[in-house]
Design a protein around this nucleic acid. Sequence first.
DNA 1: ATGGCTGAGCTACTCAGA
Length: 268
Amino acid sequence: MWLWLVILNIMKIISWNVNSVRARINNILDYIKTSNPDLLFLQEIKTQDENFPYDQFKKIGYESHVFGQKSYNGVAILSNKEIKNIDKNFISDDLKQSRIITGEINLKKKKIELINIYAPNGNPIETEKYDYKKNWFKKFISSIKKKLAKNSNIIIAGDFNIIPEEIDVYDFKRYENDALGKLEIRKKFREILNLGFFDVFRLKNKHKQEYTFWDYFSGSWQKNYGMRIDHFLLSNNLIENISSININKSPRSKIKPSDHTPIELEIN
DNA sequence: ATGGCTGAGCTACTCAGA
């Protein structure tokens, strides 16, 4: 197995909204030990940089690149490989929220741009929160266009807070007027795809109904009342490099879980 | 299925999440 991985030079990249890195630290460490990612994109770390548990990840072989914020939001990339050009200014955020961290990694001869996002929720609609979400995506799409002009190898992963299609939620009617399911927001997702990206899970699973998030309320997990809002988007150039894509439901079943579960990509 | 559950900051209760 080891030899096979080395020969193919497979890299495992995982995205997980952990809903607080400190409240979840043991779950995250356990998960890393069993899943062995090369890169782990975290969202909603809910802490400032100075309180991030760098040492605990360092002990198991990971460097942490952190864009934190007190109480809310915050993203990080954990890596056991060198990441270059870490950037926390991918867009200018009107509310100065920590939602995007980017970097670069080399995979064989390709230089790949890594973009880890935690998109705004946007509820309730008809408030400034929804406007912020729309405007955030507008800026994000504009920055993606600029990046594409320089590098056609791009991986965007994270919590998009968008239900792409009706199949991606347990009861679409309930979300068609919600900031996660409104057509206007789903069109933002399509707009990104139309720049030259694929939603990797949907590309590889045309009709599968799987979710990445289940509410803490009312036994949503037990009833499988979930939604698929965490995504891997790969630029056209990288599609031939996909080895696998998997939503790993196991962490959602643990004690003290995040409400999201990881999505795992292998590329070669 | 417009309720109820979780985390941070703080230490009573609000804000935010989706």
